[in-house]
Simulated scan of single mutants.
Amino acid sequence: MRALIIAVLVAALGWSTWWLIGSTAHQRALDGWLDAQAARGWVAEREDLDVNGYPNRFDTTVTGLKLGDPAQGWLWEAPFFQILSLAYKPTHVIAVWPNEQRVTVPEGPVDIRSDLMRGSVIFTPDTGLALERMNIEMDKVDIAAPDGWAAGFATAKLATGRNPDRYETDFAHDIGFDAADLRFPSRIMEIIDRKGRLPDTLSSAKLFVTAGFTGPWDRKAVETVAPGLTALDVNEFSIIWGELELEAKGSLTFDAAGVPTGSLSVRAKQWKQMLELMVDAGAIPGGTAGTLETGLGLVARLSGRPDTLDAPLVFENGLMRLGPVPIGPAPRLIQQR
């Protein structure tokens, strides 16, 4: 019995020592990272950084956090931010955002309020901390600026997981986004829907893709230059906004200048109203609207449903066309490499 008690005490002392070493390492690593960002010109301030959770967890809480890059013009401010992990699985963390936070961009500050904003993140077990998988869930998010700018959504989920077998490189990710009841700022609605024909909220937005990148999403991607997009397989894209329904599937590749090549199979319900909205917003010159409507109307009638357009959206040589109808220059993806 005496030997058993001694063994238990030794094991407890060993575990406590290991937890203390691990928690100290966690604190020093995050402190060191923040100090390193400050040294290279970032804003990286905190009031306190503490690690708790003995005996089985490393629960890190940073209070009074300010993090941003003045050169890029952004700053994130939060009363606290938590990184929670099991002591025996430190590369799998739970991130918890506060109910109120502020993000400042070149256009000005934006306040974000939410009932829930939480994520599960798994990194590779090395110093690069490349992203393996991530799931973020958000509920009842309201976004507002001091000048009256306001937006938000009821729920949203973002998930990504590394897919090393999809492309020739090892840097592909499966990415999913699903949001409900999105509200846009009035200034954007005035551009999208000048005549007030759409409901106030977009009912549903879904996107499930596999994306290829030029490099991993790791520490360097956050601290320096984000990897560029090289390929995109759109497995599902759908939007429901009142009577309007838009769906797309297909594959695209991007050159070094961000110009896409490939095609998407598009299905647009109430496509004439979509065309009118794009003309009103200035996305399509009014002088070409009649020609587009005539050509697209012929394509829609061939499918058997005049109000629904089923056609390939083709990107080729820097231009795009919907079915046989030319649309104009293809949008260029602006990206850092």
Rank of each mutant, 00 (worst) to 15 (best):
E107Y: 03
D170S: 09
L309Y: 07
R118K: 14
L86Q: 13
D50R: 15
W271R: 13
L86T: 10
G148K: 13
V209P: 04
T63H: 05
D280S: 11
E77F: 02
P324K: 03
D111W: 05
S203D: 14
H173N: 11
Q72R: 15
G282T: 11
G228E: 08
D178G: 01
V51D: 00
T169P: 05
R40V: 12
S204D: 13
M278N: 11
I191H: 07
V121G: 07
R46G: 04
D280M: 10
V51K: 12
L182G: 13
L75R: 02
G68I: 06
S23F: 05
K272Y: 03
I6N: 06
R337N: 08
D115P: 05
T288H: 06
K206A: 10
P331A: 08
P306V: 11
P326N: 12
W217G: 09
V110Y: 08
A38I: 07
P164F: 00
D31L: 10
V209H: 06
V266W: 00
S23R: 10
A231L: 01
E247K: 14
P55G: 07
A156W: 06
P331K: 11
E245T: 06
V103L: 14
R133V: 03
S120I: 07
L309R: 13
T261E: 13
A44T: 01
G215M: 00
V105N: 05
W76N: 02
V259Q: 13
I83L: 15
G161F: 03
